[in-house]
Every structure is written in structure tokens, then in C-alpha cells.
Amino acid sequence: MNVSEYNKCVDEFSDGLYRFMLKSTKSEDIAKDLVQDSYEKLWIKHEQINVSKAKIYLFTIAYHLFIDFTRAEKRLMNLKSEPIELLQKPNFDNNLKNVLNIALEKLPEIQKTLVLLRDYEGYHYDEIAKITNLNESQVKVYIFRARQSLKKILIEMEVEV
């Protein structure tokens, strides 16, 4: 991948990556940092990476950075006992979008990540498996469970669909 192809990757994938990180971290600043770190890592390896695989490589880096971040954050929270900044305070009306946001936050972290990769970026199971270092069956099962949980929450909260 040359310089212009790398710059094209910035134009094409940074928005999606940022949204994914923002949804995962719930913090604009952290999301921006993670996006920048991901692109820095991509740049370091840009000569060895084929442009066709750049997107999946980028999301893989971002996902692992996010995992590192959450681990560090958990350690920090254990010490400080302070919650991380939430981008959106949950709004408990029955608006589908709000309920979905709340429901998403109730999901285990891995399920949430897989649903975001699937819904935000439209990745296939095999691609998600590569990014998250899981196997395809595990990805399928996690997404299945996530969908069931989300559906259950929507029904429980009597959201009009």
C-alpha cells in the first residue's frame, strides 16, 4: 500500500472506525485517540499490507487497542471507582433508538462489539472472526445471543416497532 492508498483509507474508513470506537468507548476523545493509534499502526506496516485487506487490518488493530483500553480502564476504575464518561446519558423513554442504546449497553462487551461490527460495517461472520480472533461459530453464537437479548429487552420495554 502506497501513500496515496493509505490516504484513501483515511478518507474511506476513518468515519466508520470512529463510529465503532465511539459506540464502544462512549467517549469522543478516547475514540479519536484509538482511531489515530490504529492508523499509526497501519502506517507503520503499510508497505507490507495489501490495500484490499487494509480495512479489515485496521479494524483488527482498533479492536485490539480497544480491548487493551478497556482492560486498563477496568483497572483504573477499580482504583478510582469512578465511571467513565458517557457520551449519551440514557434516556428512559420508549423511543426505539434510546432503548436500543440502553439494550446495547446491557450486552456483554464481546456481544456488543460483534453486533456493532455486523451492523455498523456489515462485516461477514468470517471477517468478524478474523478481527476479534474468534472462530466463525463463536461469532455466530455471540451474535445470536445478542439478538435474542436485544429483542427480549425491546419486548420487555414494550417498545413500538
Binding site: 468515519d15 466508520g16 439478538r147
Partner: peptide, 14 residues
């Protein structure tokens, strides 16, 4: 289940 699909908010850009 279709309602469970989370659509990205395209107004959010980097």
C-alpha cells in the same frame, strides 16, 4: 429482530 439492527449514525464523522 429487525428493529434490533443498529444503524450507524452517519452524521457522526471523524
Amino acid at each position: 429482530l429487525k428493529a434490533c439492527k443498529i444503524a450507524p449514525d452517519k452524521s457522526i464523522v471523524f
